[in-house]
Amino acid sequence: MTSNAISAQKTQFYIESSGAAPEFVPIKEIQSYSGFDGKASEIDVTTLDSDAKEKRKGLTDNGGFQIEVNRVYTDPGQTLLDEAQSDTEPRRFKLVLPNGWVGLFAALVMSFDLKGGVDAVIKSSAALSITGKVEWQKPAAKKGA
């Protein structure tokens, strides 16, 4: 059997700039990412007439998204991420997977730290808190297909 697993190589991640004409700016030097780690809340609807706990599914919390980068102070995307730490409003982000699927979401930049060590390059990790829905777009159909 041949696996249909998707390589993470060539994944792209963008942050939207602010201003009159916002555009998605790539964040370079990403080494790893993880996220969309939230879950729906659980609502207890148990009453005195219930024979056991009764539950309903509540709203979904899409959780967070984290990236780790080689810190590059001349990268416009990393500069926007750094600036967004002080924003009180969320920024929009775009994750483009190598298979063409695109995830769009809004998030608050909660932190963008700095770390270094012996025999290492300077790295940063950004922690984003997703607000609202994550929208997934299918890959564009190839012409002639």
Rank of each mutant, 00 (worst) to 15 (best):
E29F: 15
L80V: 03
V109H: 01
G103T: 02
E68V: 15
A141H: 06
M110K: 15
A145H: 05
A106S: 15
G35M: 02
K53R: 13
L104I: 09
R92P: 02
N70M: 11
P98N: 12
F13A: 03
S18Y: 11
D44R: 10
G63M: 09
I6H: 02
L59I: 06
R91C: 03
S7K: 13
N70R: 11
T79K: 12
G144I: 02
A84P: 04
G144N: 05
K138Q: 10
Q137I: 10
I67A: 03
D113K: 04
W101M: 13
E83Y: 09
F13T: 01
P26F: 02
P90R: 06
L97R: 15
E135N: 10
P98R: 04
T74V: 12
K142I: 13
A141I: 11
L104W: 01
L59R: 08
T131W: 00
Q78Y: 06
D37M: 08
P26R: 12
K133G: 02
V118F: 07
G100F: 07
E135Q: 12
T131K: 13
G132H: 07
E29D: 11
V96K: 11
N70H: 09
P22L: 00
S18I: 14
F93N: 01
G58I: 08
L95E: 00
I67N: 04
A84E: 01
K142R: 13
G117T: 02
F112Y: 15
D82I: 05
A21F: 11
I27A: 05
P139M: 08
Y73Q: 05
V96S: 08
T11C: 08
L97H: 11
Q9V: 14
W101R: 15
G144R: 02
M1R: 10
K53D: 00
A20I: 10
K115S: 13
I122N: 03
V102N: 01
V25R: 04
A21V: 14
P26Q: 10
R92M: 12
F24R: 03
D75R: 09
E68M: 12
S7T: 14
T11L: 07
F36G: 04
V134G: 04
Y14F: 15
P90Y: 06
I130T: 09
S111I: 03
T79P: 00
A141G: 08
L81Q: 02
F13R: 02
E54G: 01
V102A: 07
A40S: 15
M1D: 06
D61M: 07
I122S: 07
Q31V: 11
R92G: 01
L114A: 05
L80D: 00
L48G: 13
R92Q: 15
F65S: 03
